[in-house]
Design a protein around this nucleic acid. Structure first.
Lengths: 249, 249
DNA sequence: CGAAAATTTGACGACTCTCAAGTCGAGTGG
DNA sequence: CCACTCGACTTGAGAGTCGTCAAATTTTCG
């Protein structure tokens, strides 16, 4: 036996902002959101949920799997963000009307959507819920900034280490991960596009992490001996994820 | 004689979202914002407006000059964003409560602030104004994404070209720039930290732009022969700035 | 003028790219 | 069960980009 969890009573919106927001207010918000969410939809591997420039009319919460934000140009793909279950993957579209990037599934994924109309009725009536949604998009922005820092500061092996450290923390917030194995459906080409290096160099960087004894990546899955060593190597500081706990510094 | 402009009747908030938002709604919002803004304050060169982790209680609009968002670590400075007049430079703090980065002036700058309390009263009463503020922060996020793409896709000379092309467009939106000279107070070390390269390499990249006949940077000021050539060289596409005009694509 | 800051140049090594080729692993048809 | 095939992964070689150290030159400003 175990306690009934939020994600069971609210299977669609239940993980939204989990671990990031005052829990009482969060649960109250999830109560409002849950009935607005549509029937979950399965996305095939690599399927695109919304394209750059396309008029956005719905927003979607990722329930299962991973999704990417990518800018595709001249056949090259530049990944500018990644999402884990519990994230609204395209909430920026509610306010921006269209996105500047594609949103696609990496492995298989499952999402539930809500129409912008329904969401807007909610935000117009409830400024606190509007602010929670706003908060979620600002979390994306904070992660963007950290990625900029990573690209400016780290070499390829460190970037890969940082990527997995980030996923480790984000998944932990939504109870999707614990222990020393982090499973993902990423190919080395995916990792390369997230880190801004060539696939060949990503391969060498993966080999380097193995040599250093920091972790082994096999078919996207990371097997790590000790998270704190890996995080130190990557210069990882979880403050930018705005988890529970007080002001950073 | 000339027409009375928004920036004269509303010297503090008048340029906020100029060129980015339906003008009627924007003017109405600026009307609400203007009386809440405090007396302008001059910032010295390099002065820090708010530090990473510090509790944020006010938000500030940049009136004059340039400001940076930077993550400082082990004595190294990683610039993750830049602001031009008309921008709220620390609006993320209204919702996040504290920022993950410092906000500092590059050259001399002038700002006007508004207390979070005043701003929150406004957003609670007016969901449309809340959404406009939200929009402004999402514009920051879109620019963050483009910077990520730039770091992943461009070499040093192209990054510098892209940086100036972006400033050209952003300044044009707020009527702060036209013509073939773009004045900034940036040192080459500043440019280097924005582009994620060493100061020495930034110098060589600046020299390369000169050799290519694309533009000459002297003491931060760019003298360009032809903006469209420079923009093509940098792979610049203004869609991410969400200016007037329809959906990209 | 003189000091400090900013810019420039040279040399060398590290990181990363591309091209090319070879290996491994899961799924398919014989 | 085994050969085949396709995608993912791995390895090698040579070149370009970029970092660092050191030093010279130019510009700024008291």
């Amino acid at each position: 036996m175990h306690a009934i969890t939020q994600s069971e009573t609210h299977p669609l919106a239940g993980r939204f902002l989990q671990g990031r927001f005052p829990e009482a207010a969060r649960i109250e918000m999830v109560d409002q959101l849950e009935p607005l969410m549509e029937e979950p939809r399965q996305l095939a591997e690599g399927e695109r949920l919304i394209a750059r420039g396309q008029r956005a009319t719905r927003a979607s919460i990722l329930l299962e799997g991973y999704m990417l934000r990518a800018i595709v140009q001249d056949g090259r793909r530049f990944i500018v963000g990644i999402h884990v279950p519990g994230d609204f993957v395209d909430l920026h579209g509610l306010v921006l009307k269209h996105l500047d990037h594609d949103v696609t599934a990496v492995g298989p994924a499952r999402v539930s959507s809500v129409s912008h109309d329904a969401l807007r009725s909610l935000t117009e009536a409830r400024s606190d819920i509007a602010e929670a949604l706003w908060f979620a998009t600002l979390l994306d922005a904070a992660i963007h900034r950290q990625w900029i820092r990573n690209l400016e500061a780290l070499d390829a092996p460190q970037r890969i280490a940082h990527l997995y450290a980030e996923l480790h923390h984000r998944l932990t917030h939504v109870d999707r991960h614990s222990g020393l194995t982090l499973r993902t459906p990423f190919t080395q080409a995916d990792i390369a596009d997230m880190c801004g290096v060539s696939a060949i160099h990503a391969n060498r960087a993966v080999a380097r992490l193995r040599e250093l004894g920091l972790g082994e990546i096999r078919r996207g899955d990371l097997y790590v001996r000790d998270w704190s060593t890996l995080e130190r190597y990557a210069g990882f500081d979880p403050a930018y994820l705005y988890g529970p706990g007080r002001l950073s510094r």
